[in-house]
Computed example of a mutant assay.
Amino acid sequence: MAPDTAHPNRPRLLRYVLLSIGWLSVALGVIGIFLPVLPTTPFLLLAAACFARSSPRFYHWLTSHPRLGPWIAGYLRGQGIPLKGKVYAIGLMWPSIGLSCYLVPLPWARGLMLTTAVLVTIYILRQKTLRQPLHKQS
Rank of each mutant, 00 (worst) to 15 (best):
A2K: 10
P3G: 09
A6S: 14
A6M: 09
H7Q: 07
H7T: 04
H7D: 00
P11T: 03
Y16T: 02
V17W: 12
L18P: 03
L18W: 12
L19W: 03
S20P: 00
G22P: 02
G22N: 01
L24W: 06
S25T: 05
V26M: 03
A27F: 15
A27H: 07
A27R: 08
L28S: 12
G29K: 03
V30G: 04
V30Y: 08
I31F: 11
I33C: 15
V37N: 03
L38G: 15
T41K: 07
T41C: 14
T41G: 10
F43E: 00
L44M: 04
L44Q: 02
L45Q: 03
A47K: 07
A47L: 04
A48G: 13
A48V: 00
A49V: 00
C50L: 05
A52I: 03
F58H: 13
H60Y: 13
H60P: 00
W61H: 10
L62C: 10
T63A: 10
T63H: 12
T63Y: 08
T63P: 05
S64V: 06
P66V: 13
P66E: 04
R67P: 05
R67F: 15
R67I: 15
G69L: 14
G69Q: 05
G69A: 13
P70A: 12
W71K: 07
W71M: 04
A73R: 15
A73G: 05
A73P: 05
Y75G: 06
L76K: 11
R77Y: 10
R77N: 11
G78W: 14
Q79P: 01
Q79G: 06
G80N: 01
G80C: 02
L83F: 14
K86H: 02
K86N: 00
V87T: 07
I90P: 05
G91Q: 00
L92S: 11
L92K: 00
M93C: 02
M93E: 00
P95E: 10
S96W: 02
G98Q: 06
G98R: 11
L99H: 07
C101W: 13
P105G: 13
L106I: 12
L106D: 10
A109E: 07
L112R: 08
M113F: 12
M113K: 09
T115D: 01
V118R: 04
V118E: 00
I122M: 12
I122C: 12
I124L: 09
Q127G: 07
K128W: 02
R131Y: 11
Q132R: 14
P133G: 13
L134P: 08
H135M: 14
